[in-house]
């Protein structure tokens, strides 16, 4: 299976159809395993049982950034090769990115409540997540603002790439701003300080979440291809009903 074969939307549809059940099953197995491991994980000596929120918070946060990466790669495909499948991939990914960013925000805030005593703290990580969420919503608004799919795809590709360049700058600025105003954050997610009893469930959950995204993304891409096919068929139908207008 070469890349060229995959690039054909019809071939892509059959491949997606064949892959989806397997991917869904694998995702379910991984998530169930991950949840079991997470339930059995010991309590943190400082944070108690609240550390269990980490097993859904960190994978969501990881995916929220990973999805922007996927969209940036698709943006390259759109701008350089003008490939319709790249447009489809970018468009299908955006709502999932927004959803995972939203989950990272909500779980982070629920984790923060016992730690900080407030639901929202202008903590560096959460603030960057909030800005990322705003950018996802802006991107979705941009997708929905234009009717012609390929025109919208090119505009969104440019915004995605500009965002990809700017996100590290924003992250750096927010970190700097945060150290200016208050001490370091409470959430110690990731890093070498994490014990093995937390690391393994976290890894399983992260892989499970990623596979879940891949499955959903593939299914959403399939829907989007069908939607475009319907659109072109409707245009064809409209032109057939009015023979004078070619």
């Amino acid at each position: 299976m070469t890349l060229l074969n995959l690039a054909n939307p019809t071939r892509f549809l059959t491949l997606a159809q064949r892959l989806l059940p397997w991917l869904a099953a694998l995702t379910a197995i991984l998530l169930v395993t991950g949840l079991t491991l997470a339930a059995m994980a010991p309590d943190d000596y400082q944070q108690g049982a609240t550390v269990k929120i980490m097993f859904v918070h960190v994978p969501s946060a990881w995916l929220s950034m990973f999805v922007w990466g996927v969209m940036s790669l698709s943006a390259f495909g759109t701008l350089v090769w003008r490939h319709p499948l790249a447009d489809v991939a970018a468009k299908a990914a955006a709502p999932f990115g927004a959803a995972f960013t939203f989950l990272a925000l909500v779980t982070g805030s629920l984790w923060g409540r016992p730690m900080w005593g407030t639901y929202w703290e202008w903590d560096a990580r959460l603030t960057s997540m909030l800005i990322l969420f705003l950018m996802y919503l802006g991107l979705i608004a941009l997708w929905r603002a234009v009717e012609d799919p390929s025109r919208a795809a090119r505009a969104c590709a440019i915004f995605t790439l500009v965002g990809a360049i700017n996100l590290p700058i924003i992250k750096f600025s927010v970190d700097w701003w945060n150290t200016l105003h208050q001490p370091a954050s409470v959430i110690r997610s990731g890093g070498p300080t994490l014990d093995k009893s937390f690391l393994i469930p976290l890894l399983v959950m992260a892989i499970g979440f990623s596979l879940m995204f891949v499955t959903l993304h593939l299914a959403a891409m399939r829907n989007e291809i069908l939607r475009r096919r319907i659109r072109s068929l409707q245009l064809l139908q409209a032109s057939q009903q009015q023979p004078g207008v070619a």
Partner: peptide, 9 residues
């Protein structure tokens, strides 16, 4: 908080 965060997800 733990249950509600898992529930939201």
């Amino acid at each position: 908080f733990i249950v509600s965060s898992y529930a939201v997800v």
